[in-house]
Design a protein around this nucleic acid. Structure first.
Lengths: 217, 217
DNA sequence: GTCTATATTGGGATAGAC
DNA sequence: GTCTATCCCAATATAGAC
């Protein structure tokens, strides 16, 4: 995002950080159009003129916020060592982990905003896609590659495709309603069931053992 | 959507239809916030006052447009008789059909708008969800049920789940980039490949024949 | 750099004539 | 029902003092 370029000296200013924080909170709560620069200034405890001293326009501020939050959230997604379990169980744990991540309010809102404003701000859409979904998919792909190295996926399985399919099934099952803000919020049991269902499909389609029921059931 | 209630006599007025058409085009091209009531009036060839005579507010007009377009588009999705082919081939055809539908500009834009504005207009989000994704899923579920009735799905397969997983995999693979407006547009070959990949996963996970390669390959 | 105060525009909604 | 003309407010951006 080129708009975030900034003199190195003012970059770490506490006021700048305050503005970025305040703007992030407001944008992620209310969307782009609904937030005025007055509100940002008030929330940050600075004047509007100061705000414009750090960010040349509302759009530039928005872009900075998105870049900031995306990388911060991506670091939340820890896939660590969940390889030490039978494939089916490991997939279920990973799936549940991913689901919780997708449904986190900040992640949902970022998704909504990126889609809603993506047309008007192409830079924003690209930055979001690269820092968000693409980075996430790459991490799950790496996980699948490790599984394949352990001969737990079929020899002809495509790890990237397996990752995409797994993520997509997780997203689709519960996320659309969540992203649209349609109640009710899915229960723990529903989330577990969604993760288990997606895990079973992946195991059947990509797992090394032919098509039999898994040991962990 | 309660806001569309209207005296029966004025409902079919040509001016009303002109307004609805113009507003639909503008909203779907530019999103909600970027379209002014002036622009709608100009595009429709009526005055603003006339516009307000038919729709009490910008929001009411928007809700009417969404309801209108959603049902119109849903009728586009014809799943007709694609049962007369081996499961794998039938799934590939159905998948490609669904992908084309999902990627149609109007469908993409409606998706984006519903997500972007869904928080501020909960009625809109619900109307979209019911008339769009939910209706679509139900139709694919019916298709899966028919396949199961023909013993082409496993006896313990859940048609609704199979439909959700199929749709989700199709959506995920290419749609996110499309919805974000990130080039390049996927090629015909990529779309075919995406449909084939999702079809194979479904066949392996839900198909009646154990896990063997299909006859049509 | 930071503030207060203000210029300016754009757009949602309405009044009143016909 | 339809138009023209207008009100009015909100919000982006800036001018000028300290």
């Amino acid at each position: 995002m080129s708009a975030t370029a900034c003199p190195a000296e003012t970059y770490r200013s506490p006021k700048r950080a305050a503005v970025l924080d305040a703007a992030g909170k407001l944008f992620l709560d209310n969307g782009y159009a609904a937030v005025s620069m007055d509100a940002v200034a008030r929330q940050a405890g600075v004047s509007k003129a100061t705000l414009y001293a750090y960010f040349t326009s509302k759009e530039a501020l928005f872009a900075a916020v998105v870049a900031n939050r995306c990388t911060a959230m991506a670091e939340t997604l820890e896939l660590a060592a969940v390889h030490d379990a039978p494939l089916d169980l490991a997939l279920r744990r990973l799936g549940r982990h991913l689901l919780d991540f997708f449904l986190a309010p900040q992640v949902v809102t970022m998704f909504r905003i990126a889609l809603g404003e993506g047309t008007r701000f192409p830079d924003l859409a690209r930055a979001y896609y690269a820092a968000g979904p693409l980075a996430g998919r790459d991490r799950v792909t790496a996980w699948m590659e490790e599984e394949k190295r352990r001969f737990r996926l079929r020899a002809d399985a495509d790890p990237r495709l397996a990752a995409e399919h797994f993520i997509s099934m997780l997203r689709g099952t519960v996320l659309l309603r969540g992203a649209l803000g349609i109640p009710p919020t899915p229960s723990e049991a529903e989330l577990d069931a969604a993760a288990a269902a997606a895990a079973e499909v992946i195991r059947r389609a990509y797992g090394a053992e032919s098509g039999a029921e898994p040991a962990t059931r």
